[in-house]
């Protein structure tokens, strides 16, 4: 019984503290910049981390469907296209 009271006291202390001291964090909900720009930045970031992205041709159908649903398929396809173009211009 004494232990139960002690545990209840500890939880009460936690509750009091959460009322007395609000968290010191700032919540950011909207991100600045158009979605396309930061998505392309995200993909570039991924390419740097992973070395290479791999080819879109290697993707199984179900992964393509998932990427379309998340809105990432177009972004990855655009990125691959731009990369191919820049590689070609380098070759020339």
């Amino acid at each position: 019984m004494a232990m139960f009271c002690g545990v209840a006291g500890a939880l009460l202390g936690g509750l009091l503290c959460s009322l007395l001291f609000p968290p010191k964090r700032t919540l950011v909900v909207d991100r600045a910049g158009s979605s396309a720009t930061w998505q392309q930045e995200g993909i570039e970031n991924l390419r740097q981390e992973e070395g290479s992205l791999g080819s879109m041709k290697d993707l199984p159908v179900y992964v393509i469907q998932e990427m379309r649903a998340v809105g990432l398929y177009r972004a990855f396809a655009d990125f691959e296209e731009r990369q191919a173009l820049s590689n070609e211009s380098c070759d020339e």
Binding site: G9, A10, G14, C17, S18, F21
Partner: peptide, 15 residues
């Protein structure tokens, strides 16, 4: 993020 502070977590554990 908006309601539970670290103070509250620490207080509970100290208790």
């Amino acid at each position: 993020t908006t309601h539970i502070s670290h103070e509250a977590i620490i207080a509970t554990f100290v208790g």
